[in-house]
Write a protein that binds this DNA or RNA. Structure first.
Lengths: 202, 202
DNA sequence: GTCTATAGCCAGATAGAC
DNA sequence: GTCTATCTGGCTATAGAC
């Protein structure tokens, strides 16, 4: 049993390295442009070995998406335990975390357009379960923030939710970082401000 | 000369049909997923004939991007002649127009990530000229709107500009449309409101 | 300038030895 | 489970007749 556990742990470690590479490559060039050969080369194993762990390129990407959602759920869990935070502050903290991940080059871009990845994800239970879980937790905070008057109640909660998801992958962050003129913290502050305060003056 | 002009007009008409198909396919599935075979099939000509008009897939896409920028410049030109509009109202009108184009399925998604298309566009003078022209015109309105107190002056003009470009392709619009629960006008109002007024209550 | 046919290439996936 | 070598299909681009 000890040896089985050890071998399983080795397996997990290797698969974790694979998912990390996939995650980074997805963030850097997207699903279509990423090749399985690149992943294998970066991990340092043969392509055929990858297919012993994951049965397709889509499943490889799905594993990365699932891990990101798990991290987001962990962040949400931590924020939920802090009773001093207002709902809107929790939402802001989640978006801030997502932007930090993106600036670190570790936020895989979501496939908004139709693609083989999108259809694969729509049939992936573990992925959908996490996405639904996260959406429900954020939804609770959204309605609470609208009730306490800190979030615009004229916007349906679903619109707010989709907007938060979109801002987590906001291309503006990457463009500003590519410009190389501003520190990461400054970029985050600007994009967060434009998201919650809007472009119009207050 | 009359016959030459006529033949040229036929050529323009055909090329315009090609660019229209490319534009629609770019909006629907993006550059990587679009195939030259699809374009040829949709236009109703052989693939080899396409390559008599455009030398590569990238140039095909560039032509579509250029036409969108030309349309945006035409909208900007029209708005500039209306002296009754405040600068911020002009900016809002441009974003509204972009969202209408997106809802019509005619807004090609910009290649924010590195790709062969991105590098091709960065070396395409006609494209870059128009992009710069548009950016300068919008930049003028942005600084004017910040000066008259209608736009948040705490955000650098470049941040506002990039944000407006990003909102023109905002995936939230497509997600809400795909849900099929709301009329287009309602979707545009919500997304415009979240962009300029922000998610926080005022 | 249009077509059919095909070259050339590359990426996803697999076979089979070890 | 890892490897090397290969299959397979699809896609960009071109050749060459008309």
């Amino acid at each position: 049993m000890a040896r089985t556990s050890f071998r399983e742990q080795m397996l997990r470690t290797r698969e974790d390295a694979i998912v990390s590479s996939v995650n980074r490559l997805l963030a850097e060039k997207g699903f279509e442009a990423m090749t399985v050969d690149e992943v294998a080369a970066e991990v340092g194993i043969a392509k055929a070995s990858l297919y012993k762990h994951f049965t397709s390129k889509e499943e490889l990407a799905a594993a990365a998406m699932i891990r990101v959602l798990d991290r987001a759920l962990a962040v949400v869990e931590t924020l939920a335990t802090d009773a001093t935070l207002m709902p809107v502050e929790r939402l802001r903290a989640v978006v801030r975390w997502a932007m930090e991940v993106q600036l670190a080059g570790e936020m895989p871009s979501l496939p908004a357009q139709n693609s083989t990845l999108r259809t694969a994800l729509m049939g992936n239970r573990p992925y959908l379960d996490r996405l639904l879980d996260l959406s429900e937790r954020l939804g609770t905070w959204i309605t609470a923030a609208q009730a306490d008057g800190s979030l615009d109640a004229a916007l349906p909660p679903e619109v707010v939710l989709y907007t938060l998801y979109a801002r987590a992958c906001d291309p503006v962050v990457g463009v500003l970082k590519a410009a190389g003129q501003h520190p990461d913290e400054q970029i985050i502050d600007w994009v967060l401000r434009s998201c919650f305060q809007g472009l119009s003056a207050r």
